[in-house]
Design a protein around this nucleic acid. Structure first.
Lengths: 270, 270
DNA sequence: CCTTGTGAATCCTTTCACAGCA
DNA sequence: TGCTGTGAAAGGATTCACAAGG
C-alpha cells in the first residue's frame, strides 16, 4: 500500500478534498505495481494481523503440549474464530499447510512470528508509573517475550530512581535521550490524560514510531507514527450499551411499555 | 454447539486515530424468528457504538469549557475521525442537530448517555487483584462515573478481607452469591490465564451478562453473554507488525517499489 | 451562505463453497 | 478421503456528495 486514503492520518484533518471532485473521470488508483516484491504481498488486512497474534498464542500453547500438527478446524475452535476465516488469515502469510493433513505447529509459529516482526526484539518504554504503569512494568517482560521493557518514566520526584520490576524510573524530560539511546521502538503511555499529549510528543521526538496509549485522550501524531489505543471507559460503555439493549429487547418482548422508542427513522433490522 | 463467536476485541483501532473495535462479530442469533413486531431498530453498528463513547468524552470536555454548540467538523477533529463518519454515527441515534448551526453539546451528551445505557449505574466486579486488578480497582470508580466497582475477588488468602480502593477483597468462591446480591452487571477478569475460564463460568453462573477480559485466553461463554477482550500482547504484536512492515518498505523503496508518499490534496498520484 | 442528514458508491471483512492436492 | 487454499458472493463499515433546511 502506498498512500493513505484516510488510513494513517492520526488526526481528523484532511476533511474533504478541495473542489477538485467534479471530475468523475479516472480514479487515481495506485495499485498494480511492484511486479517484483517476491516477498510477502503487503496486503494483510489489519483485522487479520490482530488475529494472527491470537493464533500465535494458541499455537504456542499447543506446542507446549506436544502437538505436532493442527487442522484449521482445531486451531479455529481454540482461537474462537471459524475455520474459513482462519484459513483465509493464514493464506495471507503463505501456504504452509498440507492438504488432507493440516499445519505443522512449529512452522506456523515461525512464520507468524516472522510476519509480526517478533524475530527481532522490540524495545518498550513505559511512561507513567502509576497503578497501571506498575502493572505494565511488572508484566514479566511482556508475554511471549520479544518485548523487553527497557525504560520507565514518570514525573514524580519520589519515583525517580526507584526500581520497578528491576528497572529504575527516569524522569520524562529524559525521554528523548534515553529512548533514542536504548532504541525504543514502542512507547506505552499510561499517564493521566493531561500529560499524555506532551509525553507523546517527546516519544515522537525520540524517534518512537509506535505508541500504545492507555490514556483516554485522542493523541495528535505525525502521519508516520502508529497509535493504538486501549480505552477502559470505552470498553465499559460498549458493554453498558449491550446491557441496555438487552434490557430493551427483553422489555419489548414482554410487551412492556417501550418508553425509549422514538428516534428511529423506520429502519427495520433483525 | 459451536459457540465460539468471535470475542470483540475492544482495542484501539489502527486507522485514523482512536476508536475501538474492528472485529464485528456475527450476531449470535440462534433461533430465527423474533416476530419483528415493533422491533426497536437497534441497528447501531458495533463500531459506531465504540465511537459514540469517544464522542461522549470529548463532548464532556467541551461542556466543561463552556461550549454550547459544536459543528460536526469541530467534534470530528477533536475525536479524531472525519466529519462524515461522525454525522453518520450520530444519525444512528437520531436527528439532534440544527442545519447551518451544529449540535447542542448538552443535548448530544444526554442522548449518547441514554443510548449507551449510562443513565442507570452499572455495577462492576473485578476478579483478580494482582497488579492490574489493583490498578482497575483504584481507577476512581472508573471514568466518568456510572460504573461503580462493587466487588473485588481473588484466591490469595493473604488478600481476602484486605481493602483495596476502599473495598474488601472476597474469595472467588463467593462470586455467585455476592455478584447476584449486588446485582453486578459487568465482570472484569484480570486473573492469570489459567484461572480465567473458571472465573468466567462463575460470573456467568451469577447472572453477569457482560465481561471485560484482560486475560490472554479465549473465553467460552453462552450466547447470551457479551465478552470484550483487551489483550496487551496482541496490541504490542500488531504494533510490532507495523514496525516490521515499515522496515520492509524502507528497504523496498531503496530497491524496487517506486512508491513514496505522493499525496496531493489528499489525492494520490504516482 | 451555512451545516446537517443520508442515499449511493466504495472499500474492507467475512463467509461460502468447491477445486486441488496429499 | 480429508483438509487446505481461494475465487466469488455476501455483508458491513466508510466515504462521497448532495439535497434538505435553518
Amino acid at each position: 500500500m502506498a498512500a493513505q486514503r484516510g488510513q494513517r492520518n492520526g488526526v481528523g484533518d484532511t476533511p474533504p478534498a478541495p473542489t477538485a471532485a467534479e471530475i468523475t473521470a479516472p480514479i487515481p488508483r495506485v495499485v498494480a505495481e511492484v511486479p517484483a516484491a517476491r516477498e510477502r504481498a503487503r496486503a494483510i488486512p489489519e483485522a487479520a494481523v490482530a488475529r494472527l497474534a491470537v493464533y500465535l498464542r494458541v499455537l504456542s500453547g499447543m506446542q507446549d503440549q506436544g502437538s505436532g500438527t493442527v487442522s484449521s478446524e482445531e486451531l479455529a475452535v481454540a482461537a474462537g474464530v471459524n475455520s474459513a476465516k482462519l484459513r483465509k488469515d493464514l493464506s495471507y502469510i503463505g501456504s504452509y499447510g498440507t492438504r488432507g493433513v493440516g499445519y505443522e505447529v512449529a512452522v506456523l509459529i515461525e512464520e507468524i512470528e516472522r510476519i509480526l516482526g517478533l524475530t527481532r526484539k522490540q524495545s518498550v518504554a513505559v511512561v507513567g508509573i502509576g497503578n497501571l504503569g506498575h502493572a505494565l512494568a511488572n508484566y514479566g517482560g511482556f508475554p511471549g517475550r520479544g518485548f523487553p521493557v527497557t525504560a520507565l518514566f514518570d514525573v514524580d520526584p519520589d519515583l525517580i530512581g526507584v526500581p520497578v520490576g528491576g528497572l529504575p524510573v527516569e524522569h520524562i524530560d529524559d525521554i528523548p535521550t534515553i529512548c533514542a539511546e536504548r532504541e525504543v521502538s514502542i512507547g506505552v503511555i499510561a499517564t493521566p490524560p493531561p500529560a499524555a499529549q506532551t509525553v507523546c510528543d517527546r516519544l515522537v521526538e525520540a524517534g518512537v514510531q509506535c505508541i500504545l496509549n492507555f490514556a483516554p485522550v485522542v493523541l495528535q501524531v505525525p502521519d508516520h507514527v502508529e497509535v493504538r489505543k486501549v480505552d477502559l471507559a470505552v470498553e465499559l460503555q460498549v458493554l453498558s450499551f449491550h446491557v441496555a439493549r438487552r434490557a430493551d429487547n427483553a422489555a419489548a418482548t414482554n410487551g412492556v411499555a417501550p418508553e425509549f422508542n422514538g428516534k428511529v427513522n423506520g429502519m427495520v433490522v433483525t
